[in-house]
Every structure is written in C-alpha cells, then in structure tokens.
Simulated scan of single mutants.
Amino acid sequence: MEEIVMKAIPEHGGVSMTRAEQETIITIGALDKIAEVCSNDPIYWRKLDAMCEKSPDDYKLTKIHRTKDGLILCKWYTVPRKLLGFRSSRVYTEEQRAQIAERFKQYREAKAEL
C-alpha cells in the first residue's frame, strides 16, 4: 500500500494538488431526481458553496472529506437533476451575426423609448 502525504495550501485551506489532478465528478442514476457532485477543485467549491447559500432548498453540501490534520480533501453536494445542463457552443455565419446585432439594436431602442 502506498501512503501519500499532502501539504496544505494556505490560500484555500485544502490539499496541495496540481490543476491537472483536481477533478469534479457528477453522478446521476437513470431514475434519480438528485445528482451528486464530488469535487476536489476549490473553484467549484466556491461556486457550489455560493449556490448553497443562494438556493439552500436546491443545493446542499452533504459531506466534507478531510485529512487527519483537518484539511479539506473533497466536498460532496446534492443538486436536483433538472438544474444540471449541458450545452454546445453555436457557430454563427456573418449574416446571422448581423441579424442578431440588428435585433439587439431594435430591442435597445425600444427599451430606451419606455
């Protein structure tokens, strides 16, 4: 068995990992209405902690794994499945961009007249 000793990073209070080692895992069963999110990435901790404060009925911090010294290894959250989404980026032609720009211009002008 290999034993790994990690040192603390004072900036975020967690365990020292390279960015490449930090991961976030989302687990959703086919019939589940709740997704579990496990992360050892401090960026996602901040985002999910903020969502827990903003929407405590939807986002919940359920577990924190720590070292013997009390340093955070990872955090577990639950999130309603309906709030998770995946989207692709759209590629627009120059003509489509011009049409969108014109619509926004008309919208801003109409809004200014109110």
Rank of each mutant, 00 (worst) to 15 (best):
Y77G: 00
E95M: 10
M1F: 05
A30N: 07
R66L: 06
I72Q: 00
D32H: 11
V5G: 03
G85L: 01
I43N: 14
L83V: 04
R66M: 11
L114M: 12
G70H: 03
L84Y: 10
M17Q: 14
G70P: 06
N40C: 12
K111P: 00
S88F: 02
R19Y: 03
E2N: 09
P80S: 01
I43K: 15
R46E: 10
L31R: 11
Y107W: 10
Q99A: 09
Y59F: 15
T24N: 06
Y107G: 02
Q99S: 04
A110N: 08
M6A: 11
A112N: 06
Y92W: 08
Q99Y: 01
D41M: 08
Y77I: 04
R108L: 09
D58N: 13
A8T: 03
T78W: 12
Q99H: 07
F86E: 05
I100T: 06
D49W: 10
K68R: 11
Q99W: 01
K47T: 10
M1A: 08
E21D: 12
E94P: 01
V79E: 00
C74V: 05
R46M: 06
A20E: 13
I26M: 04
W45V: 08
L84R: 05
Q96N: 03
D69M: 03
D49T: 13
I9C: 01
M17E: 12
V79P: 00
A35L: 06
V15E: 02
Y44F: 14
M17K: 14
L61C: 10
E3F: 02
S16K: 15
A35C: 06
E36I: 09
A8M: 05
E109Y: 06
T67A: 07
S89Q: 08
R81F: 03
K7W: 09
C74R: 12
L48Y: 15
D32P: 00
M1C: 02
C74H: 12
S88C: 01
L84S: 02
T78Y: 12
K7A: 09
L84W: 07
E102Y: 13
R97E: 13
G85P: 01
E102W: 10
R66Q: 14
V15I: 12
S88R: 05
S55V: 05
I9M: 01
E3L: 07
D58Q: 09
I72D: 00
K105L: 11
R90F: 01
Q99L: 09
D32A: 14
M51V: 00
Q22I: 02
A8D: 04
V91K: 14
M17I: 06
M1D: 04
E21M: 11
A35E: 03
T67Q: 07
I4P: 00
E23R: 06
E95K: 15
K60V: 14
C52L: 15
C74M: 10
I43D: 14
I34N: 08
I64H: 03
C38M: 11
T18N: 11
R90W: 00
M17P: 05
